[in-house]
């Protein structure tokens, strides 16, 4: 057998195709975990529940007397700073005369990574 035998080229080609498809499947497996990790990290890092929670508590303060509200403002500012390293402040004021709305809510949240500022009319 002095020369190269070129029989069975289909089998060789199929071998190549199978090995390349295995290679690409390995890449897919490799990347899929990274995708799951970065997505979950992104979700964990964004303080969605903290912001929702602050809003919920601020809206619950609507009907408080000014003296009580001042205390709740201090509560939230100091506890949020103490437990969550977040700056939280809010103010509820009466809408100016002639306005369609009754009250104006100003809510600020900042944990150093995410800042959230809202002005809502009610």
């Amino acid at each position: 057998m002095a020369r190269l035998n070129d029989d069975a080229q289909w089998i060789v080609l199929m071998g190549f195709i199978v090995s390349f498809s295995l290679f690409f499947l390995a890449i897919v497996v490799n990347q899929s975990t990274v995708v799951g990790q970065t997505t979950a990290e992104g979700v964990l890092e964004f303080p969605k529940n903290d912001i929702r929670d602050v809003r919920y508590e601020v809206l619950a303060c609507s009907d408080l007397l000014p003296a009580d509200m001042a205390e709740v403002q201090k509560d939230m500012a100091s506890i949020a700073m103490d437990r969550k390293n977040a700056v939280v402040s809010f103010r509820i004021s009466d809408a100016p005369p002639g306005s369609t709305f009754k009250k104006i809510y100003e809510i600020h949240y900042n944990n150093g990574v995410t800042a959230y500022n809202e002005t809502a009319n009610y």
């Binding site: 295995l22 990274v34 990790q37 979950a40 990290e41």
Partner: peptide, 20 residues
């Protein structure tokens, strides 16, 4: 190289999984 990709994928699977 395929084997290396697969092995390295499983080794980071655990931290990714706990994040989820």
């Amino acid at each position: 190289f395929s084997a290396y990709l697969v092995v390295s994928a499983t080794s980071i699977y655990t931290p990714g999984d706990t994040h989820i």
